[in-house]
Design a protein around this nucleic acid. Structure first.
Lengths: 205, 205
DNA sequence: CGATTTAATGACTCGCCGGTCAGTTTCTGC
DNA sequence: GCAGAAACTGACCGGCGAGTCATTAAATCG
């Protein structure tokens, strides 16, 4: 079907490999401290090659964030679509988000950065996706509230509270073994008057 | 006492004026998007003058943050030293922090930035001050828990939760009139099983 | 007023990094 | 093997902005 192409064949899946390398670099350093040269080196490729796959640094970076939020959105959607008590759903997403952001601590700064670039259309798109994600959480909370399983907070505010708490609380993770208590603390805050349940096991690292 | 100095007299309080101008600029744009020229212009002064008062951009920026956190620390200390129910103290600091950070939205990004510059001694000093501030909040929460006025969360974690929630929740402030409900929501989360209290008034803008 | 001292100025320098493009490599088709 | 085509390379370019410093301004002293 697809006529065998002429010329040098592209390195397999290079675009994807660049994104992964970029992630590794951007996670550790801040946007303006990351040189395209760094990304190229991390990918074992020359700088010029990056520009064959992405128009520029900003686009590479945005593609990276879009990938990440897409991934998170997908996972949350799956978790939240499942049946079961709202409290357990909340617990699962809290556990996932704590792990995800712990392993990508610099994303928080990156994200903050985009959220203030409101001029550009790409940034608006980011905000849209970011909102969609918050809405997923919001809906899960609204569900729980409607069923009387969660304390009666405004779901929209509660969703941002939850996401904010996750960011704040992640400060105290020094090892995977601290994950359980943090999850318990965050979740219990959303259960009306419930005591934190004892949970000693650690999540995936 | 102080012998009248010779030569051209310095512009009165220029260092302070530079800091205020820098605050105005850094609040709106990100660190790397702020040119020293911008700060100078905002202060109605030439670029070189900045370097007579600060060794460089980084130092100016850190001085700015140190000022800010010093101010916050002072206010919280005063609030927390007062007598009264823990819940009311929490309410007052939540109200203050929401307003403060709403009016300085970009500080959050600035702060995040410093917190990843762990190599430099100045950054370590920042972390120390940041910790001291969290400890203030922590103590207020511990107080409330000890007196049975707040839900029984680990105060250290709860303090970070509270600060995180404030950051997250600020997303929804579009005007001063939204302050009351947000304060109520955040505070009620820290009162065991309490319903959000109706609070319609707005805080200082 | 001129000498002296200190403050402020802004044109200039210089290193850095995003982006480019002529050249090289590695493939296919004949 | 040779021509052609597409992908990759890395030395180079240009702009930008932090930091400098010779010059100018503004005061005091005698």
């Amino acid at each position: 079907m697809n006529r065998p192409r002429r010329g040098r064949p592209p390195i397999v899946d290079l675009r994807h490999r660049i994104l992964r390398a970029a992630e590794a670099v951007f996670i550790r350093r801040e946007y303006d401290r990351v040189r395209m040269e760094d990304v190229a080196r991390a990918c074992g490729v020359a700088k010029g090659t990056l520009y064959l796959h992405f128009p520029g640094k900003r686009e590479l970076y945005l593609a990276l964030l879009f990938d990440a939020i897409g991934h998170v959105h997908e996972i949350l959607e799956t978790e939240l679509a499942s049946a079961g008590p709202a409290a357990e759903k909340i617990e699962r997403i809290v556990r996932f988000l704590l792990s995800y952001f712990w392993n990508r601590r610099y994303f928080l700064a990156l994200i903050q950065r985009v959220e203030h670039l409101t001029e550009e259309p790409a940034a608006r798109e980011w905000l849209r996706r970011r909102s969609a994600l918050a809405k997923l959480v919001e809906r899960a909370i609204a569900d729980g509230v409607a069923r009387g399983e969660l304390r009666g907070l405004d779901p929209r505010i509660a969703a941002e509270m939850l996401l904010g708490m996750i960011r704040g609380v992640n400060r105290y993770r020094v090892g995977a073994d601290a994950l359980g208590p943090l999850v318990a603390a965050v979740v219990s805050t959303f259960l009306e008057g419930a005591e934190p349940r004892a949970q000693a096991e650690a999540g995936q690292p």
